Amino acid sequence: MKQKDSLELTNKIVPDEIWREAYIALSHYPELKNTPIEFKFKNNIKKSFMQAQPKVSGLLKNKKKRGYFIMISEEIQIEDEVFDVADVPSEVLIGWIGHELGHIMDYRERSATNMIWFGVKYLTSKNYIQEAERAADTYAVNHGLGSYIIATKDFILNHAHLSDSYKSRIKRLYLSQEEIMALVDKLDAEEGK
């Protein structure tokens, strides 16, 4: 893989190809301002386009000093369809990044032992995967990224070349567009809009 140029935003390392989308998504999470996050391209992430995880070297550190990776697949193959990060619309990338930042919001309150237990449950329980993915979507929506999360869902669910089984997996594990809109409406009502 060729060397990627990256832009460092204080304690964030972001490849040039996605710096704009990362900046927009990060701007919705002021709580992560002092959290080290490194966005890295990776050759292959199974069943996913992006994946958030704590840096193993910092797992035993104080929760407030822990750093994280957001791994991004340069290409994702879903059945016979191959997507390159450059082919994904900007608002969809913002939604995906916002979702992964939602995972980091969840992780940052967990102890090292709880993070390890989280990993075990995530790998072994479909119900736990659903709970974790819906929580990350909820964090993103609650941080003002609802329209981007909907764009991401629309991109996946309305893509003609993706199989019904893959679309069913997305529908089963993540919030639906209707659930996202209900959260957005609730937030708007709370804010008096």
Rank of each mutant, 00 (worst) to 15 (best):
K4R: 12
S6G: 09
E8C: 09
L9K: 06
V14A: 01
I18R: 01
I18Q: 03
R20W: 04
Y23K: 13
I24N: 02
L26T: 00
L32A: 09
K33H: 11
T35C: 03
I37R: 03
I37E: 03
E38R: 08
K40T: 07
F41Y: 08
F41D: 00
N43G: 15
K46V: 13
K46S: 14
K47I: 11
F49G: 01
F49T: 02
A52I: 10
P54K: 05
L60E: 11
K61I: 01
N62R: 05
K64N: 03
F69A: 09
M71S: 15
M71H: 12
S73I: 02
E75K: 03
I76A: 05
Q77F: 00
D80P: 09
F83P: 02
D84K: 15
V85L: 02
A86W: 04
V88M: 11
H99F: 00
G102D: 01
M105N: 06
E109F: 13
R110A: 13
A112H: 02
T113H: 03
E131Q: 15
R134W: 10
A136G: 01
D137I: 05
V141F: 04
I149V: 14
D154Y: 06
D164M: 07
S165M: 12
K167P: 10
K167S: 08
R169D: 13
R169F: 11
L173F: 13
L173S: 12
S176D: 10
E179H: 01
I180Q: 01
I180W: 01
I180N: 00
A182I: 12
L187D: 12
L187C: 10
A189R: 11
A189I: 06
A189P: 04
E191D: 10
K193Q: 08
